[in-house]
Design a protein around this nucleic acid. Structure first.
Lengths: 220, 220
DNA sequence: ACAACTACTGTATGGAAAAACAGTAACCCT
DNA sequence: AGGGTTACTGTTTTTCCATACAGTAGTTGT
């Protein structure tokens, strides 16, 4: 098919939309009305150009005789795709990879892949998955390589397992707020010492709450 | 919508097909030609009857002005729904509850619920989820209440974590085949002693292989 | 037995829509 | 500088199509 001019493309798009929305092709007058043409002949000549270039087929002498070569179902399929994308988006969780310093954890460039898991399996609902590195949380059954389901929130209660960012370092630990204002990030493994952070001196951000876990292999 | 006569239904079906195939609604003459009418008025009165009963909507004065009330998209959406149902079936795993003695683990009556998780997340692919009871496998991070993703198979290699059935008792353990023919089902927790089974005397079946794990809450 | 409805034929007509003819004004190319 | 293309306006003609009116035949219900 030969390349279309901007105007021709706009008219073709209009015809497509019109068919999907109205269930029938537009008349010359319909096109004219949509584009503000004073004469139906403007539409007529555009249609001829489109037909010449093979973008449409014109049924001579027939009212609304504009045919799209691909058929109606394929017209719809674009929308369908969008729907399906939106749907699978809703039923899947992004796996967040290496998080760059200073950037938000859910930034597009951190999403390594998406996994088809219902976020509503977890309560509160999971917002993303984080691949766990290291053995600091083996005591609560969080192993190296596990995918941690995280609910994105800055609020965490004492004793909860959180995803925290200490000076651009993202880590999974149990949270403990001490009376003296110091925050303890406690590993669930006797080999690892608790991390003590003074929020008034060191940047500390609670990125989210651990709400679930997925282990995708025992053969590791 | 009021009930249609046989003839009216046939004409409605024709209109539907015509729209999908031709990309535009038929004229009265088109309908007449398809049904062998000598007069376009036959089609006209059928259309009026259909419009009266709410099966179609007629756009007065407009060529091919027959509208299906649901629109083309909704026509397709019925099919879509079926597809999506089939799809979500494919993208989910059954959660197997209490397994009754002597019955196959994947029997319909054991399926408590389905969870939207891609079976292909695990390798080999998971066939069902099993709620883990007890603390016998905490050493490999399988905690009480976790959902174990299981690949249904009777074949397991030495050292793999399996779902085994010993005398109608379903249990998750590490498999070890001894040289003397005795099978050891080893707990990953020093508090639990290995179970020794002599397959020649005691019924033992390997139900499947642990291929993954899902923990749906840390607040338990 | 007769009204009401369905399923048509046959004719007619006005408005809807396709499509041709005649122009104008930009813009691009060479 | 001028031919070709794009993007229109304006008008007219023909044909398509919707739709009204008049009528026939068969079926169903009461």
């Amino acid at each position: 098919m030969q390349p279309l001019t901007t105007r021709q493309q706009a008219i073709l798009d209009f015809i497509r939309r019109y068919i999907v929305e109205q269930g029938m092709p537009p008349t010359r007058a319909d096109i004219g009305a949509a584009f503000g043409f004073a004469s139906p002949n403007a539409a007529e000549s555009h249609l001829k150009a489109l037909a010449q270039k093979g973008a449409i087929r014109l049924e001579p002498g027939s009212a609304r005789g504009i045919r799209l070569p691909e058929g109606v179902l394929e017209q719809v399929s674009e929308r369908l795709d969008a729907h399906l994308r939106a749907m699978s988006e809703q039923l899947s969780l992004p796996l967040v990879g290496r998080v760059a310093a200073g950037s938000p954890i859910l930034a597009q460039e951190h999403i390594e892949s998406r996994h088809a898991i219902d976020p509503a399996m977890f309560a509160p609902r999971a917002d993303y998955l984080l691949r766990v590195r290291g053995n600091s949380m083996t005591g609560v059954g969080i192993l190296d390589g596990d995918l941690l389901a995280v609910h994105s929130t800055a609020e965490a209660r004492d004793g909860q397992i959180v995803v925290a960012r200490v000076e651009d370092d993202v880590t999974v630990k149990r949270l403990r707020r001490r009376g003296d204002g110091i925050v303890e990030l406690i590993a669930e493994n006797p080999d690892y010492a608790p991390i003590l952070v003074d929020p008034s001196h060191t940047p500390l951000a609670i990125e989210g709450l651990a709400v679930g876990l997925i282990r995708d292999g025992f053969a590791r």
